[in-house]
């Protein structure tokens, strides 16, 4: 099994704080990894480095054997925790935008997913509710045939029905040739879709393991383990 992502001793410091302090993590092809930690633990920092929009202070991170750059951006599909679509866009413009820039984008799949999410291609991005925006972003990100999907809080601020749709979309569109990292602090809703979990605390990975093994070794759910680590 080959590692799609390898991070070794990854550090990122800002003027007044250290967001990552030697995080080491690997993700194999075909696996879904849950990166779990409370706010400010360094989850987003880690993902931003992998997405190529933040640069580590020291340590290394390789995706498909390459440092983050133009190549890795072409095989990484990143769902940020921000509202990054242009305000002038209609949903179909956003689809076209992704089609124009990513050669692995599957337009048919995008429209099928829009239908599944009950989004109208003609409505404007500005007018969407928080939950609908999240669904749209996820549609765009999952419609790529990427090697690595990076989803930052895909369930954040979304009502339970939308949550279910989002989970379905993730499971349906995941292929064994790709890998996925998902961050969340809503562990309970999503723990059953993780192959692996990694707990991150104060910029360090404090525990990484196979979700099923952790369950049987500790006789606890991942959610309970999470509460125990971060109480």
């Amino acid at each position: 099994m080959y590692n799609v992502l390898e991070a070794e001793n990854l550090c990122k410091s800002y003027l007044n704080k250290r967001a990552l302090q030697g995080a080491t993590l690997t993700i194999q092809q075909g696996k879904i990894l849950g990166l779990l930690g409370p706010n400010g633990s360094g989850k987003t920092t880690f993902l931003k480095i992998a997405a190529g929009i933040l640069h580590p202070s020291s340590g290394k991170l390789l995706i498909d054997g390459q440092k983050p750059g133009v190549y890795t951006k072409s095989i990484v599909s990143y769902l940020p925790d921000t509202e990054y679509l242009f305000k002038w866009m209609k949903i179909k413009d956003a689809v076209q935008y992704f089609k124009d820039f990513y050669s692995d984008f599957d337009e048919k799949k995008a429209f099928a997913l829009l239908e599944f999410m009950k989004l109208d291609a003609n409505s404007s991005v500005k007018s969407l509710s928080k939950g609908m925006k999240e669904k749209l972003k996820l549609t765009l990100v999952l419609s790529r045939k990427a090697k690595l999907y990076i989803l930052d809080e895909p369930l954040g601020g979304v009502d339970p029905t939308a949550r279910e749709k989002i989970l379905d979309a993730i499971i349906n569109n995941f292929s064994e040739n790709s890998s996925m990292i998902i961050t969340t602090h809503l562990v309970n809703d999503i723990e059953r879709i993780f192959d692996e979990v990694a707990f991150i605390s104060d910029g360090e990975i404090v525990l990484q393991g196979n979700a099923e093994e952790l369950r049987s070794n500790k006789n606890k759910s991942i959610d309970e383990l999470y509460r125990e680590v971060f109480q």
């Binding site: 075909g30 279910e164 064994e176």
Partner: peptide, 17 residues
């Protein structure tokens, strides 16, 4: 595997196993 995974909202690899 995929149908079951979607139905149960479980990772496809888990079902595979």
């Amino acid at each position: 595997v995929r149908e079951m995974a979607t139905m149960l909202k479980v990772n496809p690899n888990t079902l595979q196993r």
